[in-house]
Design a binder for these strands. Sequence first.
DNA 1: GATACGTGGTATCCATTGGAAACCAGCACT
DNA 2: AGTGCTGGTTTCCAATGGATACCACGTATC
Lengths: 135, 135
Amino acid sequence: MVTSQKPDTPARNLCFNVYAKECPTRMVLDRLGDKWALLVLDRLQNDVVRFNALKRDINGISQKILSQVLKNLERDGLILRQAYPTVPVTVEYSLKPLGETLIQAVSSLTHWAETHMADIQDSQRLYDEAKNSAL
Amino acid sequence: MVTSQKPDTPARNLCFNVYAKECPTRMVLDRLGDKWALLVLDRLQNDVVRFNALKRDINGISQKILSQVLKNLERDGLILRQAYPTVPVTVEYSLKPLGETLIQAVSSLTHWAETHMADIQDSQRLYDEAKNSAL
DNA sequence: GATACGTGGTATCCATTGGAAACCAGCACT
DNA sequence: AGTGCTGGTTTCCAATGGATACCACGTATC
């Protein structure tokens, strides 16, 4: 049976393995497995956007989290931060080539969320009703 | 009670819009924007897996979080939970059709992480070195 | 001159969440 | 009688997240 594998014999023998705790790819998933990062990347698709514009567009994000997320994405080489010494400082964020390669995957996630929302809501309603009738 | 004025006219006027705070699609992103959920879904691709097998395979996940994630995914209609009244209870988790439609997107994310890890590490090293030399 | 505003952020506080470990019930094996 | 395995739940504490206030800077307004 394939189901139960020992921890020391991983399913994949790739150089990088998302299932291994120590693997650096997990750091990437930690980063991407963050709704705000997904939304920021999605918003930067096709656009160059300034800090406060991102804050306005991504409804509900706090400044602290936004600057944190942007800093991390910049460190990862996914986005470019460009500051211009204008009157009040102007800072523009845009996708770097590495980010462009990622946007495909991110985009299909957000698109999936938008298209299958109704199915999920139906399922949740059924689930909750079953729970309540059982009580 | 509406909190405040709308900051600006939103970029998209779709029925479901991930950028809107009140939009249900955000709940989906909250769920998917969770490294553990991504890993669980990825692990269930092509396999029917039992609770403790998932716990073993997904290195580092705690029992509490795993059962929580599984419960949520089941509620969303993405996975199927089947319990058999065997000697010690046997519980099998598998993808439901809705989950199958999602796995493509999830899979490309985890695959992206595995293939572009080296680039990210390079970028992080450069970033940190620049930071340190600036100090 | 003082005041207020807009920019891109930090700093601070506190509620929510996450993880480690302990505990549970039921039964099989020794 | 004690130990182990199953799939969880409970408990406790540290880490994270979000709301809010604050900052420096220059500009416009009073």
